[in-house]
């Protein structure tokens, strides 16, 4: 399906991070779902981007994608301008499950903060966002969480802004003080593994958003799998594109996720 680009601009000066908005009348993405972007010349495969947000503004349904330029596919996407169309397959997959009346912790690392934005829109002040960045120069989008009423607590690896350390420190503190029903996390795998462990320690439900190289996006090719614990207690591969990208953290075999 083709959608018209409304804007596609750098998120922050000097970083390879972009913020694209498309007019998407029938694109009703749930938080955490994926959009599979057709890219230009020189790419064989589509690129899966998580949906950052989906909202309506003056009667127009808008889908928002924040992404990092990592290779030629995302580079091509970043070069598209307002008025052009993009070919998107989606929304795909199984997104974050929201729970009415729950208090949520959104845990994001780096570009993993983007799929949490839809949750911030839904939970508002009933969520706190714990956002980890490499350094002060990489901080972005925190004000958007605040705009939805979600308190954003920032931590940086090198302490150049906010607290120094990893986002797990903030999570441990938040859960110690209590009152949270569910954790949503997206970021590098080691960070998600650590978050999953903390969630288990405090007995709080935790949903994680997984990422793998993806081909078909519809569950046919079995390319984007991650190792999970199946209902029968055995290990088995599940597809990130249709069974995920969001899984219960307890399902993931973290030792296998490298």
């Amino acid at each position: 399906m083709k959608y018209k680009i409304l804007s596609n601009t750098p998120l922050r000066e000097g970083l390879e991070l972009f913020d694209m908005r498309v007019c998407a009348p029938d694109f009703n993405a749930l938080p955490g779902q994926i959009a599979h972007f057709l890219c230009g010349e020189g790419t064989t495969l589509r690129r899966p981007l998580s949906v950052c947000d989906c909202y309506s503004q003056s009667g127009m349904q808008i889908a928002r994608f924040c992404y990092e330029v990592r290779g030629k596919g995302t580079k091509w996407i970043s070069e598209r301008i307002a008025g052009e169309e993009v070919d998107i397959l989606g929304p795909l997959g199984h997104g974050f499950e929201t729970v009415d009346g729950a208090k949520a912790v959104l845990v994001g690392g780096g570009i993993g903060i983007y799929p949490l934005m839809s949750l911030s829109r839904i939970y508002g002040k009933n969520a706190v966002a714990l956002l980890g960045f490499r350094d002060a120069a990489h901080i972005n989008l925190t004000e958007d969480f605040e705009a939805y009423g979600t308190e954003a607590r920032v931590i940086t690896d090198d302490g150049s802004s906010g607290r120094q350390g990893f986002v797990t420190v903030l999570l441990d503190e938040a859960l110690k003080s209590g009152g949270y029903d569910i954790i949503y996390v997206c970021g590098p795998k080691p960070m998600m593994a650590a978050v999953s462990k903390i969630a288990e320690k405090y007995g709080v439900r935790c949903q994680v958003s997984m990422e793998e190289h993806m081909a078909c996006g519809v569950g046919a090719c079995l390319g984007c799998v991650c190792q999970t614990m199946l209902a029968d207690g055995n290990h088995g591969y599940k597809r990130v594109c249709v069974d995920g990208p969001v899984f219960e953290s307890s399902e993931i075999i973290w030792e296998a996720a490298k």
Binding site: T44, E212, L222, G223, C224, V225, H235, Y237
Partner: peptide, 22 residues
């Protein structure tokens, strides 16, 4: 079960797969 991920790599004008008959 098939092979451990990563199972997919893009190449110029093509791709590699290593699904392993899952």
């Amino acid at each position: 079960d098939g092979n451990m991920p990563c199972r997919i790599a893009e190449t110029p004008a093509g791709m590699l797969n290593s699904i392993g008959l899952q």
